[in-house]
Simulated scan of single mutants.
Amino acid sequence: MKKWLMVLLTCALSACSSSGENKTYYQLPLAPSGAQSATTQGSRLLWVEQVVIPDYLAGNGVVYQTSDVQYVIASNNLWASPLDQQLRTTLVANLSSQLPGWVVASQPLGNNQDTLNVSVTGFHGRYDGRVIVSGEWLLNHQGQLTKRPFHIELTQQQDGYDEMVKMLAQAWRQEAGSIAQAINQMP
């Protein structure tokens, strides 16, 4: 009798432990674009100094808003690398492809560089099938400061985390396009 109890207990424990181990890792996709090379001579320089995210986004879990006031941080749907790093890397790539004649980097480029700092306040899916990307950016262009808020909502075409991450990446690319447009309008 004790043997059967031990076997049953072992099976129950192994079933519980294996159900929680199916973790999925996500990386923001980069938009397909041709590789660009640039030289610093005659180019304009932009340093994406930092992309800051709030604590609730800084963990490993993908965030999902379940009501007007509740957020869930997933324990099995995780970012493959820190979200702030992914946002910065994809922003540099997106700006590089949208700003011809510019050298865009995530490290200092010299004395005559413009700097861009972004504060992301929302980067999550929502209960109504939409994704939210919000925050503000601050550009220092030749000593002139430009600060702009952003709030993008896109509707997911399908359910699931895969679609949510793709739509978040699309919204982030869209904001990079808005930043690039603002930079291109500057003297």
Results as ranks from 00 to 15, higher is better:
48 V>L: 15
56 Y>W: 14
66 T>N: 01
61 G>I: 06
50 Q>F: 07
73 I>S: 10
41 Q>D: 08
40 T>W: 05
40 T>G: 14
73 I>R: 09
73 I>G: 04
51 V>L: 03
56 Y>A: 06
63 V>H: 09
78 L>S: 09
79 W>Q: 02
56 Y>T: 10
62 V>S: 08
72 V>I: 15
48 V>W: 07
71 Y>N: 12
76 N>D: 12
63 V>K: 03
47 W>Q: 09
39 T>W: 11
72 V>S: 13
51 V>D: 00
64 Y>A: 01
45 L>P: 00
64 Y>V: 01
59 G>F: 15
54 P>C: 08
62 V>F: 07
57 L>S: 07
47 W>I: 10
45 L>R: 00
55 D>Q: 13
52 V>Y: 02
79 W>E: 00
69 V>I: 13
78 L>A: 13
58 A>H: 09
59 G>R: 12
79 W>L: 04
43 S>R: 05
40 T>E: 05
39 T>Y: 12
75 S>D: 06
76 N>W: 11
50 Q>R: 06
64 Y>R: 00
47 W>G: 02
61 G>V: 04
78 L>C: 12
45 L>Q: 03
71 Y>C: 13
53 I>Y: 00
55 D>Y: 10
46 L>R: 11
73 I>H: 05
60 N>A: 15
48 V>C: 12
67 S>R: 03
56 Y>V: 14
50 Q>C: 05
79 W>P: 06
43 S>I: 07
62 V>K: 04
78 L>N: 05
53 I>P: 00
49 E>R: 06
52 V>E: 02
47 W>S: 10
75 S>Y: 08
69 V>E: 07
55 D>S: 14
69 V>G: 08
57 L>W: 08
76 N>V: 09
55 D>F: 12
46 L>F: 06
39 T>Q: 12
51 V>Y: 01
41 Q>G: 12
76 N>T: 11
62 V>Q: 05
58 A>L: 11
71 Y>T: 11
78 L>G: 07
71 Y>S: 14
43 S>W: 01
69 V>S: 13
54 P>E: 04
46 L>E: 07
45 L>F: 07
67 S>E: 04
72 V>W: 14
54 P>T: 05
73 I>E: 08
75 S>C: 09
43 S>K: 04
51 V>I: 10
61 G>D: 01
74 A>V: 04
53 I>Q: 01
71 Y>M: 15
43 S>E: 01
39 T>D: 11
55 D>V: 13
57 L>N: 06
54 P>L: 10
44 R>V: 00
41 Q>L: 15
79 W>I: 05
79 W>K: 03
60 N>H: 10
73 I>T: 12
68 D>I: 01
71 Y>D: 08
66 T>G: 03
55 D>W: 09
47 W>M: 10
60 N>E: 11
63 V>E: 09
66 T>R: 02
72 V>M: 15
59 G>K: 08
69 V>L: 15
60 N>F: 08
52 V>K: 03
39 T>L: 14
46 L>H: 07
58 A>C: 11
41 Q>P: 03
60 N>K: 14
49 E>W: 05
46 L>M: 13
58 A>W: 07
61 G>P: 01
42 G>N: 06
44 R>M: 07
70 Q>T: 05
